[in-house]
Amino acid sequence: MVVNGRPVRLPEDPRVSLLDLLREHLGLTGTKKGCAQGACGACTVLVDGARILSCLALAVQYSGRSVLTIEGLAEDGQMGPVQRAFVDHDGFQCGYCTPGQICSAIGMATEIERGAPSHVTADLTGTVEASAAEIRERMSGNLCRCGAHNGIIAAIQAACGAGP
């Protein structure tokens, strides 16, 4: 497995989740453990570009895959564009859900780019736009208990290059 560009040894115990591998074995504590049962999205990471929940993922299943976490998003020591947009638009308060929100948003952007429909897409065979309604539906797997959702939506819209 490769994590943020670096080769990583898989755990011997198959019970270790990808989340625990990141946090406890590799010291990458940016990815957060919220509910640990797939309900909150705080543990979202990108695997080969697709967003998944690392709490429900057994690390052994991901041998040979490339994992990207919040720690891997900086470019030349500077925040990536989605991180920057969250700061600019107050897309958080306490910050606990933020790494998951940002990884999820990056995965969501690629889904929209390739034309994947969502529950709120009226025409399944038409084109997809990053409207606020689309982003709200597509980000519903990431909860924010501070209630910063309006800032989160604004940040994602700005980062995805869509209008207000």
Partner: peptide, 23 residues
């Protein structure tokens, strides 16, 4: 699926979250 069996696409998209559907 989207063209010929839209009920299936809609049913899947109505379930879980995007992260879970990816897994």
């Amino acid at each position: 699926v989207r063209q010929r069996y839209p009920a299936l696409a809609r049913a899947i998209l109505a379930g879980a979250s995007a992260q879970i559907r990816n897994m």
